[in-house]
Design a protein around this nucleic acid. Sequence first.
DNA 1: CTGTATCCCGTAAGATACTG
DNA 2: CAGTATCTTACGGGATACAG
Lengths: 128, 128
Amino acid sequence: MDSCPGNGPKSQYQAVRDTLDVVSGRWKLVILAALFARPFRFRELSREIGITPRILTKELQELEQHQLVSRTVLDTRPVTVEYACTAHSRTLLPVVQAMSDWGYLHHEVVVGQKRPDDPARPSNLGAH
Amino acid sequence: MDSCPGNGPKSQYQAVRDTLDVVSGRWKLVILAALFARPFRFRELSREIGITPRILTKELQELEQHQLVSRTVLDTRPVTVEYACTAHSRTLLPVVQAMSDWGYLHHEVVVGQKRPDDPARPSNLGAH
DNA sequence: CTGTATCCCGTAAGATACTG
DNA sequence: CAGTATCTTACGGGATACAG
């Protein structure tokens, strides 16, 4: 209420910062985007998005601490681990969706052309 | 469509990455959030969000290169410079809005209480 | 006031190899 | 397969002082 009417002026920035603190780096939102589609096993996820094991481990641990991914050890032979999104992480879907949408848009603006496999802008994030 | 039905599987991650490449770091989206409310002068913006001049310069330059902020030199004495959001940057509003919303939500979840000045969740981003 | 110039540090993140 | 251990590099980002 210092300069602009209405409410929560600076806390608005703080809210953005709070979110950035949780999904910082250039991997967490990509990981979540993948897990929104379907669960993945460790190695599978690693290859899917092109991230090295070391980084993936760290990112997944941080996401787990924030209740944004679930880790399930499957009783297979050899043991496999499945990572999936959580109810809480699903509240981040609008963020990921908005970023995904904008990524397409910006690509068109900058490159001036659409991507090959882009029928009519999917939006199939929560479609598993 | 390697594994999941529908369309654009991996390009979805790529779209998120494209966006992250543009708004990376923990300042650009905060800067845009501020400029969505109203234009700011350099020093004013620096103080508003608590960022040092050096970083602010760099961030603004990068945003300018992506056509996400406009820089206007005002003929005052001494000279002042006004930064404002652009038409293109306004397309990022959903991203910033989603992040802002989630920041509030997450704060409530984690801290278990709302902020002082939070009547009913504002959403006054594009309200200038 | 609007920036720039240094100096400096912590950490994100990649490469590679290895263990259970 | 799921992860860990090092080692290394790049860069984001802060402090401070200075210039136009």
